[in-house]
Each structure stands twice: as structure tokens, then as C-alpha cells.
Nucleic acid binder design. Structure first.
Lengths: 145, 145
DNA sequence: TAAGCTCTTGCAAACGTTTGCGATTACTAA
DNA sequence: TTAGTAATCGCAAACGTTTGCAAGAGCTTA
């Protein structure tokens, strides 16, 4: 069981650490990359058969609100990952293959400054996703034509 | 009935123009700004009581695929508007008040070029939405503290 | 350690959205 | 104008997600 610091943090915020929550946290942590809700549910259920899908949803939303996990929209489906501890990152999601790529925060600094200066609009760039077509799929598409 | 050019365009693409579709198109067009699915449904039902919610969903998705309407995510809810004919625009959505502001394409040109150059990632910036806090709500928040 | 308070869980029902299907309708061609 | 064909509609059921509620469990205090 890693993520001891996350547990301390949650306890400090008055979040009760139930077996279900620990299990879901572990599942998300072990699921390298990004897991969908149903995948988290299925895996957690293997360890604890009474696990309820409603608990999974409630727990993931709680973790998201607490900043412990990050939600990434991949083609209409929500995926979850443990929040990047050393500096947040963003995502580029390919609409063709569904692949998710990380994007360092630097690339958004200027965009953010522009919106602030021009519109006094403070964008949420902590959890930012841009969809598009990745380089691999671009090559494939060209090959088809 | 405006939007004659849209009808021609749809017919040209082999889309059947049923009364239900015309009605939904008019509803979206008249609903200044952005209408939710339920609002489109309710308004369309006033003119044609047999209107089915499934038809509204199917039609809006069809129109979206045809490029006739644009989908905007406003705080977990999808809204629809007639696609901007003279140059597309983007949206800034306030997560506090739910307000949607237009954003001219210019502000994204540089961001797009960066992603292309650095990652060969072609972003979908035709229908781009960034959430955040608008200037009005920022002032309110300050006042509360 | 045990009691008590509050939060969380599991269940079931509700909600919003999507899908399958038979009946109906828009469009095409004669 | 009419008949034929394929797409669309309305209905109902299915699906994924959220919510209400009573039973159960975590944390605090003494």
C-alpha cells in the first residue's frame, strides 16, 4: 500500500477512510494510465464482491473534489488517474484511437495570460483536455487515402 | 422560416427533411444563445405534441454531425446552437454562473501551432470550450470574503 | 473500551440518454 | 401521380449515472 501521504491528507480533511475507499484508491493507483468507471468497479469488485457501482461513483467524485484523482474525458467517457503530485499536467486525447497524451503546463501559460488580460476570465487549466488527432493516426489516415 | 441555405445543404447531403427535423432546427435557431436538450424538446413539443425525446436526441446528433449545429458543454450539460456561419467561434463557460461567452478563433491560433510543431498533434479547435470563472463572478467571490 | 454521533454504504428507484423494432413517412423514379 | 424503397418516427426497454433512504460502520470522546 503506497500513497500513505494521500491517506494522511484525506484524513486531515475529515474524510473517513472506509475499506471501500481504500480499495478504490488502490485500484485507480494501480491502473496505470487512465481507468474508466466500469473498469474501476470491476477490478474493485474482485477484491470485495459487495462493492456497489454507486459507491464507486460517489468515491471517485469525492476524490476528485479532494484533488486526489483527476478526471480525464476520453471520447465521451470519463477516466480517472491519481493526480500528478509534482506539478499538474494536461491531456491531449486522440479522437481516432482514444489515446491520451500528457501535456506539460508550460504550453498553456500564454493562453491563460491572454484570457486573463483580454477578458478577465480565469480559466480552469488544472484539468484541461484538448481533443484532436495524434501523429500516429494522422499517418494512418493519409495511408488510407 | 429562415435558414433556407441550411435546408438546401442538408438536402444535398441526402438528409430527409421531416417536419420533426424542421421544427427542431427552428427551435434551436430561435433559441438565442444556447439551448439544452430538454429546452429544445419542451419548445418543440408545444408545436407538435407527439414529439419524442429520442427524436430530439437523434436529430441534434445528426445536425451536429452535419455541422449544422454546434454542441457546447456548459457545466456537465450539453447545449446546442446554430453553427456560426462566418467563421467559427469558441466558448468560455463560467463554472460559477453557467454563463457562456464567445471567444474569437484568433486567441487559439498560437496554441494550435505550438501543439502541431511540438507534438504533431492536430487539435480539434472547431468546437472548443474552456471553463473557468468569469469577471463578474470573480468580483462576487471577492465581495463574499 | 464502549457509546454515541455522523457519515457512508448497499439497495432500489429515478433520471437522462441511447438503442431496437415495427409502423409510418419522405423521397425517387416511372 | 402513384408505387416502391429506404430512412425516420414513436414507443418501450436498456444503459450509465445519480439520488433517497434505512441499516451499518468509522471516528471521537469520555
Amino acid at each position: 500500500m503506497k500513497h500513505q501521504h494521500i491517506l494522511e491528507e484525506l484524513r486531515g480533511k475529515g474524510v473517513r477512510l472506509t475499506p471501500q475507499r481504500l480499495l478504490i484508491l488502490n485500484t485507480v493507483a494501480q491502473g496505470e494510465g487512465h481507468l474508466g468507471v466500469d473498469e474501476v468497479f470491476r477490478q474493485a469488485k474482485e477484491s470485495y464482491p459487495y462493492m456497489d457501482i454507486a459507491t464507486v461513483y460517489r468515491t471517485l467524485h469525492l476524490f476528485k473534489k479532494m484533488g486526489v484523482v483527476t478526471e480525464v474525458a476520453i471520447g465521451d467517457r470519463l477516466h480517472f488517474e491519481i493526480t500528478d503530485p509534482d506539478g499538474r499536467h494536461h491531456h491531449m486525447v486522440c479522437r481516432e484511437c482514444g489515446g491520451a497524451y500528457n501535456l506539460a503546463p508550460d504550453y498553456l501559460v500564454e493562453f491563460r495570460e491572454t484570457l486573463m488580460r483580454e477578458f478577465a476570465f480565469e480559466p480552469d487549466l488544472d484539468n484541461f483536455t484538448v481533443t484532436g488527432i495524434c501523429s500516429v493516426c494522422q499517418s494512418k489516415d493519409k495511408a488510407k487515402v
